[in-house]
Design a binder for these strands. Structure first.
Lengths: 236, 236
DNA sequence: CCACAATTTTGGAGTGACTGCAAGTTGGGT
DNA sequence: ACCCAACTTGCAGTCACTCCAAAATTGTGG
């Protein structure tokens, strides 16, 4: 098991294919590059490409396994006094500091984001991956709180948290793509992370509540702009 | 514009193609039916099929426009005193009563769900549709509360609500597919809708909080089973 | 009823992802 | 050196989907 020549070659080949592919995709766009071209660039046959990667999309998106492992760790290793939401918020803010690839803050993320956004196939695969990661996080949470298999709450919590981070990442990419500077985007993200995670914690129950009594005949049903999410959930 | 012969024929053709397609898909599964077969069954050429439907998946899933309109209505027509979450909960419970198709409670929904679940292409398209519907709901909410275009909260609220209903539908389909009776599933759904929407309202902030002091050396970090989500959001 | 234009349908010839198979080629153990 | 297993390759084929130009159909004005 000393890492034979065979194993090394396999790893190298896989790597070479993946690198050539991502390079071409980033340069010319996903749909503008054929698998045959990738194969030629990596100096292998088309069949070999499909031997290593199940689909063309996987050539660009094959971090799913890593993601699942990392997220499992976040849930498992949360600190004393931390809820699951707390743990993910901390991780998100840390990632913001370190320019982690997961949330799309790293160098060149705008290009990557643009390539994904422009290809329906890649967008679809991204969603599917997110779904699977969600299921994985839900399982991790369920295991941690030792929940009944019938209990749906872990899934809900996972879904809520991941939609929050996904939302933040998406806006980050959009802003960077629109030409905003990394500094500005980071500041904005830090602020919005506070808002959104706060909303997550305290609940969205009151959002957009329509007033019981129509005001003075002025506007129909406007909301206060500043603090329209209150803690009261009682319904009359 | 008296509904000429031409328009009627077009509508009929489209309908015929769609019906034949869904029939075949439900009977034999999405991947086991080719577009050519659908075309033959509908007595048109393959090109005509693609003339009416952009992709094979759209032959099975073309309610998106309806969905968006309905959801817009739910947001717009919420009653006095109702928050957005309230409005969607009410709609969900109503749908449960009426066997509405949107959440997969109608007759034959298990078959439909199985067909979708078995095809990666259909699953992917479903996710993409859900994403677009989400964006639409977010826009509706933003418009209703007259939010700043920069404000991300409407998107978060939309995402949260729709993941809740989606979660409920998914479990409903799974249970029906597993052979549970409609009655049982409905009862379960009604109960879970209460739990999940409640969690949405009051926030998931405390979920899975790890205790500050490890208990007595018994188990490591278990949670109370009944009410592990409290209203306190303060972090120590 | 007859051109004539607009629209729809169709056939045919691609392209590109992906599969299955049979025939090489290569690495590792004997 | 020899063999087996794993890996690679070429080839033929399927299927979704596109582009284009030639019918076929429908609506319109004389």
């Amino acid at each position: 098991m000393e890492e034979g020549l065979r194993e090394r070659k396999k790893r190298e080949t896989r790597r070479r294919i993946s690198d050539m592919a991502t390079g071409l995709f980033l340069m010319r766009g996903f749909d503008q590059v054929t698998v045959a071209e990738v194969a030629r660039a990596a100096d292998v046959s088309v069949n070999t490409v499909f031997n290593y990667f199940g689909t063309k999309e996987d050539l660009f998106l094959d971090r799913q396994a890593d993601l699942e492992e990392i997220y499992r760790g976040i849930v498992r290793d949360r600190r004393p006094g931390e809820s699951v939401v707390d743990a993910f918020r901390r991780d998100f803010l840390d990632a913001l500091d370190t320019g982690d690839w997961r949330y799309g803050f790293h160098e060149g993320a705008e290009v990557w984001g643009r390539v994904v956004a422009e290809s329906t196939a890649l967008r679809a695969r991204t969603l599917e991956i997110e779904r699977q990661v969600m299921a994985c996080v839900a399982a991790a949470i369920a295991e941690e709180v030792d929940a009944d298999p019938e209990d749906v709450r872990p899934e809900l919590v996972a879904e809520q948290i991941l939609s929050t981070t996904r939302l933040l990442s998406r806006h980050a990419l959009r802003r960077r793509a629109a030409g905003e500077s990394p500094r500005e985007t980071e500041a904005w993200l830090r602020e919005q992370a506070g808002v959104l995670f706060g909303l997550l914690e305290s609940g969205v129950g009151g959002y957009g509540r329509r007033p019981l009594v129509v005001a003075e005949d002025g506007e129909a049903a406007g909301d206060e702009e500043d603090d329209d999410v209150e803690g009261d959930h009682g319904r009359p």
